[in-house]
Amino acid sequence: MAAGMTLTMTVARKTEIGYFLSDGKDEVFLHANEAHERLHIDDEVEVFLYHDHENRLAATMDMPHVGMGEYGWLEVVDISPRMGVFLDNGINKDLLLFIDDLPKHSDEWPRPKDQMLVALKQDKLGRLLAKPVTENEIVKIAAMADESMKNKSVEGTVYKVIQAGAFLLTEDEHILFIHRDEMVGRLRLGQTVRCRISFVREDGRLNGSMKERKEVQYGEDADKLLRYLINRDGAMPYTDSTEADVIREKFQMSKSSFKRALGKLMKERRVEQVDGWTKIIQSEQEE
């Protein structure tokens, strides 16, 4: 017998606090709190085996959301900075997703209420742990997308984070990639977001963006710059020559987005650049 197994066992003995179950060879304890009803000697029960809080092999009549050899979405219920994150697998003891299987940056870790796509594994002592579903397993369940999905809005949950961006599985089980430049804030494992499909690849995967279409974003960014200028009495020491890291820190937008927004305002004759400053054109305001 081992943790992660689902077995039909027979009640061999009763105690004040529970039952000893037998598979004909070995026995395991089923606490009364883990039984769904009052049991009697020779009753047959279906149980799931796990290690309890004292690391003893034990039985429960509660069935896990994800069993050995299966995978599924489990909710994050707690976080331990030293150990990892704990997931609700439908039984009394939460399932640990170990720190080694999580991103190095803690701000990319899942948070409580997030959903993680995982399977089960055993550590060296036979205890159950969660493990992220592999890319091969994702590919097996993923659906092929077609061109009709372009520009549609979809919801997806992050299952993998890399330096270039994040991979998500959509509600219709399409694989979707969001590049970091197309994010609104850094994404984390287990996070569910809504985004727009920007490209449908030949292999049936999707590229997505959390940003508005460019023509919409230009207007929003331009309004943001204009509000900033107004709050600074109509002038700011930032132009299209300002360093990209300064732009990102001050306005939370890329250098290219800043230049497009600034270009829009200049084309509309609402601002001008003078001696390293961007200024609202006062004559327009006075009119």
Rank of each mutant, 00 (worst) to 15 (best):
P81L: 15
P81M: 13
R82G: 06
R82N: 12
R82C: 06
G84N: 09
V85F: 09
V85Y: 12
V85K: 10
V85W: 11
F86A: 02
F86P: 12
L87S: 04
L87T: 00
L87P: 01
N89T: 09
G90R: 01
G90Y: 05
I91E: 11
I91W: 10
I91L: 14
I91H: 06
I91P: 06
N92T: 08
K93M: 11
K93I: 06
L95E: 13
L95F: 12
L95I: 00
L95M: 10
L96F: 14
L97M: 11
F98N: 06
D100L: 07
D101I: 12
P103E: 01
P103K: 10
K104M: 04
K104E: 08
H105K: 11
H105N: 10
H105Y: 00
S106L: 14
D107N: 15
D107P: 10
D107E: 07
D107C: 03
E108N: 12
W109D: 05
W109L: 04
P110I: 02
R111M: 11
R111G: 05
P112T: 07
D114W: 04
Q115M: 15
M116E: 04
L117M: 09
L117I: 12
V118L: 13
A119M: 12
A119Y: 06
L120A: 08
K121H: 14
D123Q: 04
L125S: 10
G126H: 09
L128F: 12
L129C: 09
L129P: 07
L129M: 15
L129N: 11
A130I: 03
T134N: 03
T134D: 15
T134S: 15
N136F: 04
E137N: 11
I138S: 04
V139S: 07
V139K: 00
K140F: 10
I141G: 07
I141R: 11
M144Y: 10
A145F: 03
E147M: 03
S148N: 13
S148D: 09
K150S: 04
K150H: 04
N151G: 04
N151F: 07
N151Q: 10
S153C: 07
V154F: 14
T157I: 01
T157H: 01
V158K: 08
Y159E: 02
K160Y: 06
I162H: 09
I162W: 00
I162A: 10
I162D: 09
I162T: 14
I162N: 06
A164I: 12
A164D: 15
G165L: 13
F167P: 02
F167C: 06
L168P: 03
L169H: 05
T170V: 08
E171V: 11
E171I: 04
D172T: 08
E173H: 09
E173L: 13
E173G: 00
E173W: 09
H174M: 10
I175E: 01
I175S: 00
I175T: 01
I175K: 05
L176R: 07
F177I: 02
F177H: 07
F177Y: 13
I178H: 10
I178T: 03
I178Q: 06
D181V: 11
D181T: 07
E182W: 03
G185A: 12
L187C: 08
L187E: 00
R188N: 00
L189M: 14
L189T: 05
G190M: 01
Q191G: 14
Q191T: 02
Q191D: 06
T192V: 02
V193M: 12
C195I: 01
C195V: 12
S198N: 08
F199L: 13
R201C: 06
R201L: 06
E202K: 00
